[in-house]
Design a binder for these strands. Structure first.
Lengths: 238, 238
DNA sequence: CGCCAGCTTGAGGAGACTCAACCTAAGTGG
DNA sequence: CCACTTAGGTTGAGTCTCCTCAAGCTGGCG
C-alpha cells in the first residue's frame, strides 16, 4: 500500500486505538494492524446520518469518537430515539443479526469519527479473530438490556421521571465537568430530549424551566448543564 | 443409554421435532440425535416460571410447544411483559449475549413443553454445529426488532391503538379459528393485556367492553375471541 | 354454597398534549 | 456591520386521555 493512499484513508489510525476496545482486546498487534488496514475512516458532521433505516447493510461501523443516536421514524413521521451509542462500540452490525438491511437510522449526535468495513468482512472477522464475535454479542446483549430498560420506563414511569432519567444517563455517558456542574458535551435540543423520552418538546421545555428555577440545571440553547445530579436521580425514581 | 432412562427424560423426542427449526435446520440427523440425547424435557404449567430474572443462567431452553411471556418487574413492583416467545424459539440464551444471569423472567402463558441444556454446552453447540449460532443470532435480531417496535408504540401511540395492536399480534401468533371468529388459544386476562401494553386492567376492560358492543370482539373470563380483525387493525393505526 | 380471582363501571381529577403566540440567540447575506 | 431570517425555546389556555379510587358484579372452584 502506498504512503499516499495510507495517509488518505487512515490519517490517524494507530493500533492503540483499538487495543482497549472489547471486540479487539484479545487480539495481537499484528491482527489489529490487519483489521485497521482494511478500514475506511470517515468524519461525520453533527446531525448527519451514518446509515439509513431500510438501506442495504453494506458496511459495519465502529464509533471511534463522538456520539451516535439510533433513531426510527414512526408511520406518522415522529422521530424516536431507540438508543444511544457511546464511542468504542460497533454499530450497523445487521449482518451479525441475520439482517441484510439496517433496522434503524444512525445519526451523529455530535461530530464523530467512524471506522467502517464492508459487511462481507464480518464473517471472516468473526471466524479469524478470537473473541471478536463473543465480545460483539456482549454488546448486543447490552443493547437488548438497554431497550428493555426503555420499555420498562415508557410503560411505568411518568414523563418527569423519564426526562430526569434521560438527563442522568446523558451526563453519565458523556458528561464533562465544568464550573458549576456537569455539562452534556454535545449539542442537544429539547426536541432531542423529547424524542428520547417519548414526549413533546413543550413538556421538556417546561420541565427544564422548572428545574432551572430550583437550581437543578442550567441551560442555554442546545446546551444543558446539570448542577445537582443527585436531585435529578431522586426525581427519576418513583 | 438404557431404555428406561430414555423414556424418563425423553418421552416424545423425535428427531423430526427439531429438523425444521431454524437453529437446527442445517444439521444432519446424526447431529440432531446427539443434541436431543443431551436435552432435558420439562412440562411447564400455565403461569409457572421457567427461569427467573437475575438467577444464574445455568441452562438454555427451546420452547417446543406452548407459549412464553418474558416479564420484568419494575422497582415499584409492576409487571411488564417485554416480549412473547412462540414455539420453536430458543430462550434463556444469556450465554450468547455475554451474560451470566437471566435478564428477565420467563413465564408459561399456556401449558408448555421446553427442552433444555446446560449452559456450558452452548459453546460446543455453537462451535460444532453449522448454522446454529448464525440462526440463533437471527432470532436475537428479531427480538431487537420486536423490542424496538414496542418502544415505538409506547412512545407514539395511544392506549387504544396499543391494545388493539397487541390483540392483532396475539391472534396472528396464536389464533385458533372458532365459529364466529378467531380465538386466542391460551388463557389471557385483562391484567395480562395491560402488562403487555403499559396500561391498567381497568382501561383494557373498558376498551374490550366498548369493542364488544361494536361486535369487534367477544370475551369471557380469560378468553378473548376476535370477530373483526380488520377493524382492530384499523383501530391500531393512527 | 361460599369464596375469590377476574371483571365491570362510574366519578373525579391529574398529567400531558395540542394549539397558539411570542421571544431570542445565532447565523446569513447584502 | 447591521438587518433579516430562522431554528430553537418559552409560556399560557384549554382540553382530553387515561389513571386512580371506589364499589359492586360474576363465573368457577374447593
Amino acid at each position: 500500500m502506498s504512503d499516499s493512499l495510507a495517509r488518505k484513508t487512515q490519517p490517524l489510525l494507530d493500533e492503540s486505538l483499538l487495543t482497549f476496545l472489547p471486540p479487539f482486546s484479545k487480539l495481537e498487534s499484528r491482527q489489529i494492524r490487519a483489521i485497521l488496514d482494511q478500514a475506511t475512516t470517515r468524519r461525520v458532521e453533527e446531525g448527519a446520518a451514518i446509515f439509513d433505516e431500510g438501506a442495504p447493510a453494506e458496511r459495519f461501523y465502529l464509533l471511534l469518537d463522538g456520539y451516535v443516536r439510533v433513531v426510527r421514524l414512526s408511520p406518522t413521521g415522529e422521530r424516536i430515539t431507540a438508543l444511544h451509542i457511546p464511542p468504542g462500540q460497533l454499530l450497523g452490525i445487521a449482518r451479525a443479526l441475520g439482517r441484510t438491511d439496517y433496522p434503524a437510522t444512525a445519526v451523529a449526535a455530535a461530530e464523530s469519527i467512524v471506522l467502517s468495513w464492508p459487511t462481507r468482512l464480518w464473517d471472516s472477522f468473526a471466524a479469524e479473530y478470537e473473541g471478536f464475535s463473543t465480545e460483539t454479542y456482549a454488546v448486543v446483549g447490552k443493547r437488548l438490556e438497554e431497550m428493555s430498560e426503555r420499555i420498562m420506563e415508557l410503560a411505568t414511569q411518568h414523563v418527569e421521571q423519564r426526562v430526569a432519567n434521560a438527563l442522568v444517563r446523558l451526563i453519565n455517558q458523556s458528561g464533562r465537568k465544568v464550573p458549576g456542574g456537569i455539562e452534556i458535551d454535545f449539542p442537544i435540543t429539547r426536541q432531542d430530549l423529547s424524542e428520547m423520552t417519548g414526549t413533546t418538546l413543550h413538556t421538556v421545555s417546561r420541565l427544564l424551566s422548572g428545574w432551572e428555577k430550583q437550581g437543578l440545571v442550567k441551560s442555554q440553547r442546545k446546551r444543558i448543564m446539570v448542577c445537582d445530579a443527585h436531585a435529578l436521580v431522586v426525581l427519576s425514581q418513583p
